[in-house]
Design a protein around this nucleic acid. Sequence first.
DNA 1: TTGTAAGCGTTATCAT
DNA 2: ATGATAACGCTTACAA
Lengths: 331, 331
Amino acid sequence: MPGTIKEVAERAGVSITTVSRVINGNPKVRQDTRERVYEVIKELGYVPSAIARGLTLGRTHTIGLILPEIADGFFSQVIRGADEAAVRQNFHLLVSTFHSHRSDEELSFRLLGEGRVDGLILMDPTLGDDFLMEFHRSSFPIVVLCKKIKYTNCKYVVIDDLQGAYQAVVHLIKHGYKRIATIRGPLDNYDAFQRLAGYKSALKDYNIKLNPEYIVDGNFQWEGGESAMHILLDLVQPPDAVFAANDPMAIGAMEAVKKRGLSIPKDMAIIGFDDIELARLVTPPLTTVHLPMYELGAMAVESITGMLKGKSTRRKNILKTGLVIRKSCGC
Amino acid sequence: MPGTIKEVAERAGVSITTVSRVINGNPKVRQDTRERVYEVIKELGYVPSAIARGLTLGRTHTIGLILPEIADGFFSQVIRGADEAAVRQNFHLLVSTFHSHRSDEELSFRLLGEGRVDGLILMDPTLGDDFLMEFHRSSFPIVVLCKKIKYTNCKYVVIDDLQGAYQAVVHLIKHGYKRIATIRGPLDNYDAFQRLAGYKSALKDYNIKLNPEYIVDGNFQWEGGESAMHILLDLVQPPDAVFAANDPMAIGAMEAVKKRGLSIPKDMAIIGFDDIELARLVTPPLTTVHLPMYELGAMAVESITGMLKGKSTRRKNILKTGLVIRKSCGC
DNA sequence: TTGTAAGCGTTATCAT
DNA sequence: ATGATAACGCTTACAA
C-alpha cells in the first residue's frame, strides 16, 4: 500500500481535506500548498484508494461485462472493444461468463448487489425478459447486447443483420449475377430470419424475381452448407451466385462446388456472413459480411458511461455491418 | 441498491453486529435470531456491499489480469481459464490489456495502488525485470506468465516447450521416420530455442545422429515455413518427417510439400507446435503440440489465491504441453 | 484558502 | 448471545 491520504496530509503539514482537494484538482488551493502536497504524494508514491472512494462516492468506475463464453473469436473481440473504450474513459472492466454462474440470481448478486460495478453489459441470447425487467426496475445502468428487448425499456445494442445481408446480395447483383440463391439458417433463429429478409429485400429493390427454389435450408453448420449447395447444383437451372447466411455454411458450400469440379467464383460466386477467422484463409478467400463485435463492445461501454454521466443515451443502438470483399464473389 | 446492513438490523430488531455475524456464518448467534435476520435479508433482497467490505478487510476478492492482447486465440483461452478458476474461488477478474496503458507506472497505479485488486497476473513478454522487482518489493501477490524470472523472486508460470518438442519428435521417431528435420524459429526467441533443444534431445535419446542440414531456419511465419520446406526438399536426401517450431510454419511447410505434388504424411510427415485454430482445419489436419493456455490462466489464479490464503505456493510452475495427434504425422 | 467533522457500509474489538 | 463503537480511507458540507 502506498500510504493513505492521512499520511500525505501529516507529512505535508496540511489537513486531509486539502490533500483531497489537490488530488481532485479543486482550484481552491494555494499554489505553493498544492506543490508541497504534490511533492509529498510523489515522495510517498501515494495513490488514492479506489475502494474508499467507491464507498463515499458510490461509484466504482468499473463496468461488468457478462458473456456466454470468452475464448471465442467473436466474444473476445467484444471484450477487446469494451476494454479499449473503458480505458479511454478511465474505467475498469470486470469480465465474467454467464454459464459459470449457477443462476441469474447469483450473477445479479455478485455484480450489482455487491456494488462492485457501476453498470453491466449483458450478452446472452438466453436472457429472459422477466429477468431483465427485474434489473431495470432497479434503475441500474445496464446494456443488453445482440438482443432486441421488447417488454422492458432496457438499453440495447444490436447488429443490423438485415442491412448486412442486403448489402451482400446487392454486391452480387452489381457483379452481374442473375441467378442468386441463398442458403438460410434455422427458421426459428432471429438472425437467420433477418438475413433472409435482407436477401429478399435486395432482390426486390433490383426487380429480380424471387425463385423459391433458390432459397434452401441450412443449419448454420458446415455440413448444412455443403448439402444445401448440392441441392442448388442439382437444380435444372443452378444459380450463379449464393449468399450463405453464415460463414461455416458458405465454406461448406465452397467445398461442394469444388467437389463437383467447378470453380469459385467463375462457376459460382459465394458470399458468407460473420467474417470468421477462417473466412480469409479458405481458397479462394471468402467475401463476407463483417460483424462489428469490437464496436459492439465499445459502444456498450460508452452507452453505460454515458448513462453514468447522466447523458440521455439512446435506448436502442443499431450497428452497421461491413462487407469484406475478398475473392469468392468475383472481385 | 438492495439496502444496507443497518436497514436489515433495524427491521430485524437486532444490532448490525448481529446481522454481520449472520452474514458471515458466525456460530455465536441464536438459531431463532439467525432465522429472523435471514428472513429480513431475503425480504429486502439485501446483499452486503463488496466495497465496504473491501475497505474494512483490505481485500477486494478481485484479481487483475493483464495481457498484451485480448482478441487472440491464445490469450482469450488464458482469460477463460482464469475466469473459471476465479469463479470457483469466488473471485472476480479485472481484465485489461497492457498496450493500452501509457506506461508501466500507470498500470501499477491503476490496479495495485488503487487497491482494486488483491493480486495481479501479468502476461507480457516485454516486461522488464526491474519493473517486476519494484512490484515484488511491495510484497504484492503477483504472478508472471510465460516468462522466466531471473533476478527477482516473483512467482511465475511457464509452459514446458522443451518437453513438448521432445514429445513431438519422439512421436515421429516411434512412427518409424528415420530422417527427421526441424524448422526452427528465430534464434533470439527463447521459446524457439527451447523447442530446438527438445528436438535435439529426442534425437539424442534415441541415438539418431543430428544432421545439421536438417535444421533449417524459419521466422515463425507461414512463408518462412514454406521456403524452409523447399530447402529441405531440395536436399540430396530430403527428410521424411519435419517438426516445425510453430503451426504457421508447419502449415507453410505443408503448402510447399503439396506444391511439389507430394503427399502428407506419406511422402512427408509434419508436426507443428501451438495448436492454433487452423491446425485442425488444414488438410490433412495437423498433428501438433497443444499449449495449455487455459490451464495457464487457471493456475495463475490459483497461485494468487493460494498466496492470499497464506499457503506457501511454488515460486515456479511448469505446465506440460500435450501432443494433439491428428493426421499429418501418419497416424 | 484551509480545516473540522460527518458519513459511506462493513468488520472487529471489547463490553455486557 | 448480543450490542456499542472504533476503524478502514476517502469526499464533502459547513465553519473559520
